[in-house]
Design a protein around this nucleic acid. Structure first.
Lengths: 160, 160
DNA sequence: TCCGGGTATCTTGACGTCAAGATAAATCAG
DNA sequence: CTGATTTATCTTGACGTCAAGATACCCGGA
């Protein structure tokens, strides 16, 4: 009888016409994600970042040298709108972690480049982040972890 | 090779020292939740609500008649801070869906009550919401759904 | 050449959220 | 009864996000 079960029991009492099985699954998914996001943000904060800024820096970092992508490339990697991405880049530029370079091939566009400081920052952050992620999933047995990964992959495929 | 696999492949190339298995699982969980949240908000929007306002109305509704709870009760049900809850109640009060009543037992506190309009609204919304949730999980086979539910419950138990 | 539609990015205004602290009332120790 | 502590709620200021639209440039056809 966890927190979600209590919610479902209330609904069954008040609205017995509703089938709340799906609500239970999605509720657990949401609550779990909220807990995980807090833990993850807490580790990133130690490196002066948050999920938003880390996502951008990490996308640049894993693209490989010379660590440069267009805002459009960053957009398609991150599930946010263009206004959000502009804001993220503004913040990172102010912090000296990325810079906007002229795009020589298209005067409409710019190129976002990791600065040396940005590279150092994201490399340190991702090391701690990955260790933290391993800690967060440590309660799962290896076969549970694999099973969940497979289920999530199938489920996610419906939307991507 | 889904979107998350591509990210992991990039990290393995750029930072082969990192073990990214946990990152894959948590990444899929996050992306899936983001897709689901969009679908869910879209249904709630049709009823003039969003996840924030629905959470409050739904908590009041499933508590049963007389559909009244203190802000503190609502707080402990919803994983948000007190400032956020004050703001949610303000918005719902402005919309005429809840009202603040004096708490006769504690002059510090108030009681949040669903208005008749609020009750109508949340009952219609939850009916559509539950149907939408069933649609969202329809791609899972019954045994997959049960397996995921069990895994999520165990995982969630670590944090609650 | 020049125009029109398409593309890349940015701006604006409104929200929802949080952390930290303020306010006021209840409660408890002496 | 009084002062100190705790509790319940609200306020403030900053941030991240989005939808919608603006701006500047590219490119293909007449």
């Amino acid at each position: 009888m966890d927190h979600v079960d209590k919610i479902l029991a209330q609904w069954r009492r008040e609205r017995p016409d509703l089938d709340v099985v799906a609500m239970g699954l999605l509720g657990r998914l949401s609550r779990l994600r909220a807990h995980l996001a807090r833990e993850i943000d807490s580790t990133l904060t130690e490196h002066g970042l948050n999920s938003a800024s880390f996502d951008v820096l990490a996308t640049l970092r894993r693209s490989g040298p010379p660590f440069r992508l267009s805002p459009g490339d960053l957009l398609s990697a991150t599930m946010v709108t263009s206004g959000t991405m502009t804001n993220r880049i503004d913040q990172l530029e102010k912090a000296g972690l990325v810079e906007r370079l002229d795009n020589p091939e298209d005067r409409r566009g710019v190129i976002i480049a990791l600065t040396p400081e940005g590279l150092k920052r994201v490399d340190a952050a991702v090391t701690a982040h990955v260790a933290n992620q391993q800690r967060l999933v440590a309660s799962l047995e290896p076969d549970e972890r694999d099973a969940m990964n497979a289920l999530l992959r199938n489920f996610l495929a419906v939307f991507e």
